[in-house]
Computed example of a mutant assay.
Amino acid sequence: MNIFKSHFWYNKSQRNGIFLLLVSIIILQIIIFIDFSSEEKVDLTTPRTLAFHKKIDSLKLITLEKRKPKIYPFNPNYITDYKGAQLGMSLNEIDRLLAFRKTGKFVNSKKEFQKVTIISDSLLTIISPYFKFPEWVIKRKENTNYTSNSKSFYPKKVKIKISTTNINKATAEDLKTISGVGEKLSVRIIKYRSKLQGFSKENQLYEVWGLDREVASKVLKVFSVLELPNIQKTNVNTVSFKELLKNPYIDYELCKKIFEYRDEVAELQDISELKNIKGFPLNLYDRIVLYLVAK
């Protein structure tokens, strides 16, 4: 007991101090209770409060509008799963469009788009202003040169007169009349023709870089070698290394072999002796000798 007594034994002045502390705590608690209980309630229905909330709501709408992805004009025939989801289309609506496109067909109006996808009128109204169809689709109703088939609408081909059917005299404009031959390919064909000094054989057209074999065949159905070009031939026994390299069918390695053979035999008596060179490309012989003679 003496141990605990030392903890609870206070003199008079200490007891007075503790008493005053307790009184102060009680008074402070009463003040806090009265202050909170008498707090004035805010009226949320006043015009000023309602205007404030309306302003906050408008700012929220502006923020949400800015977060929406911006839609640019697009061809609805090429909508992907991601693009369709952005536009608000369902998976079924997107799948219907993709299945339709796999058949090789195209939609060419917003009505056709709705017919294929079965989207709602409200969604069509929102996204159709951004539809961008090819220019010929837009003009097909105004131009009588346009017709349709079971897959889509295609413009009638207007026949363009060509200046010649001689492939060695055909212009770039003549060549562009062939389906698949555009500006770049027509120029490339003419440049290669110049390099060859003219086409001697029709199958040389297949050597043009980037020209699809099928397209080349279309060209040869219209254009052909009507007369052989006047090719300046060089003497294989006197030609320089640099000049021989200008032959469109001779590369550096073959040029080197020809010179080594020429040094070995002193002089070629006949151009056919080129076939005796080890590693000579026999499949190119008839083209290489278009530019060489042995005199």
Rank of each mutant, 00 (worst) to 15 (best):
S90V: 05
V137C: 01
K70R: 08
L61M: 10
Y78N: 14
L98A: 12
S128R: 04
K139P: 03
G104A: 00
K111H: 13
A99R: 05
K68L: 02
F36K: 09
I31R: 09
F36L: 12
E39I: 09
R101L: 05
T117N: 02
E39M: 13
H53V: 09
L124D: 04
K105P: 03
G104F: 00
Y78C: 01
P129R: 03
L64A: 10
L91I: 12
R48H: 12
R140E: 03
T103N: 11
H53E: 13
R140Y: 02
Q86E: 15
I127N: 04
K132W: 06
L98K: 15
I56D: 13
T117Q: 05
I56F: 11
F74W: 01
F131E: 00
S109L: 07
K110I: 06
L64H: 04
I31F: 14
F33R: 12
K70G: 00
S58F: 08
S122Y: 04
H53K: 14
S38W: 12
V137R: 04
R67L: 13
R67Q: 15
T49N: 15
S37F: 11
I138C: 08
L59D: 11
R140F: 00
K70S: 07
L98R: 15
K55E: 08
K141D: 14
T63N: 06
Q86I: 15
G84N: 06
R140V: 00
K115Y: 10
L87P: 00
H53P: 14
P76D: 01
L44Y: 13
T63S: 09
K60R: 00
I62W: 06
L44N: 10
K139A: 02
N92F: 12
E65P: 05
K55F: 11
L97K: 00
F131A: 04
K70M: 00
K115W: 09
V42E: 14
R96P: 05
N92Q: 15
N108V: 09
T49G: 11
N92A: 13
S120W: 04
K111A: 15
K60L: 07
N75H: 06
K68P: 04
F52D: 11
K110S: 14
S90I: 07
L59Y: 12
F33T: 13
K115I: 08
P47R: 05
I31M: 12
T45P: 03
Y82T: 12
I138Q: 05
Q114C: 00
M89A: 09
I32T: 09
A85F: 11
F100K: 01
L123Y: 02
N77Y: 03
S128W: 00
G104M: 03
I32Y: 12
V42Q: 13
I30H: 09
F113A: 04
K41H: 10
L64G: 04
K110H: 07
K105Y: 06
L123E: 01
